[in-house]
Design a protein around this nucleic acid. Sequence first.
DNA 1: AATAAAATGTTGCTTTTGCAACAATATTTT
DNA 2: AAAATATTGTTGCAAAAGCAACATTTTATT
Lengths: 210, 210
Amino acid sequence: MYDFMVFDGIEETDVKKLLTEFNALTLHYKKEATILSNVSNTSSFFIIQSGKANIIRYNFNGTKTIMERMDKGDIFGSFSGTIDDDLYVIADTDTDVIVFEYNKLIQRSGKNIDAHNKLIDNVLNKIADKLTSYNERIEVLTEKTIRDKLLKFFGYLSKKQITKAIVIPYTLSDLADYLAVDRSAMMREIKNLNDDGLIESKGRYINLKY
Amino acid sequence: MYDFMVFDGIEETDVKKLLTEFNALTLHYKKEATILSNVSNTSSFFIIQSGKANIIRYNFNGTKTIMERMDKGDIFGSFSGTIDDDLYVIADTDTDVIVFEYNKLIQRSGKNIDAHNKLIDNVLNKIADKLTSYNERIEVLTEKTIRDKLLKFFGYLSKKQITKAIVIPYTLSDLADYLAVDRSAMMREIKNLNDDGLIESKGRYINLKY
DNA sequence: AATAAAATGTTGCTTTTGCAACAATATTTT
DNA sequence: AAAATATTGTTGCAAAAGCAACATTTTATT
């Protein structure tokens, strides 16, 4: 899967025309700032122009879960949430965000038709990609043991990184979070995988031996 | 959330025109028949015209997991899968399916513009809805104990059914599957919830006492 | 370069969960 | 209506995972 951006295949001048037509704003956020606090209720459509941001869920027991990590060219909006929310979008680095009304995207005027169509095509593909990555997380989460969760996760990573010498793209604490398991129990299981010769690992660097 | 269909808001005559323009076919499947076997690799776009179908993953240990239950007006296609597949779409009842090339949906001709735009809007919303329900499952799956998974699930159900006297919309076996837990352990936990006075339940009929 | 703060690694103990093997009801099919 | 099949309900026991409390190492911050 190729990591594309929502403006791919659209001339820069056309992008500018579209954004003007949409009355789009560019907003700047410092690292750690809250970009959006009621994710499922916004009528706006957001595009990350530069930087990184996460969709985060705050659990009532005080912990937080990263629902999605977003990069340049990624999108978010009401489609990113659930009924029940507590979902926030938080800047992970200094981040620039393009914002406009979702309706503008849908209600096509007669202008810039081709660019507009391409944009919608890209948005559709972007959302489909999100669906794929959610699907992937569900497949990992439905594995019963921590061992099986790890192996499935490593498998996906290996496919994406096209090598058996994978690097976990975030901290092991965050991985435990992603797998929804206790970190120490996960560490124990990683050790077991090493002992059983299934992997050879040091921190986030893992060699798959199967 | 209102359960809409992908042709909502489009005149029947316009729907027919669009489908002709797309060279769409209607295919009929008997209950249990395989509608699609390589979900992530299709270039077709599918709409359920009547009946029900499930997206199913076959696990290598012989068990199967229902990834998604689909009804009249629901859509599926390559966006429904992962890299790693083993995903199948299976008819749950006798089912009629409309099929056409995904590209036809995207590459707009000059004809039926308004209807076409509305259709794309609906498709976008449909996919966003799928995202919401996947999100919801992730939120349930990330709860640590079976008890918490049940309570979160019941909470969502209660919101959707707008009552505390909820009915689980499928068998308890399927629920265990959805929660990715052992059925007997889940039954034990349902008993515990009854004993602790948090619910009053008989089979799939559950009364929330909180 | 020193200090502070995160992240990683480890272990004993307790709780939760899965597994297996049933019995009892419901629901379909013939 | 009888038989066959599927679903629900229950339990003892073993395995897995969570929790808590640390030590160690790495990465950031001053």
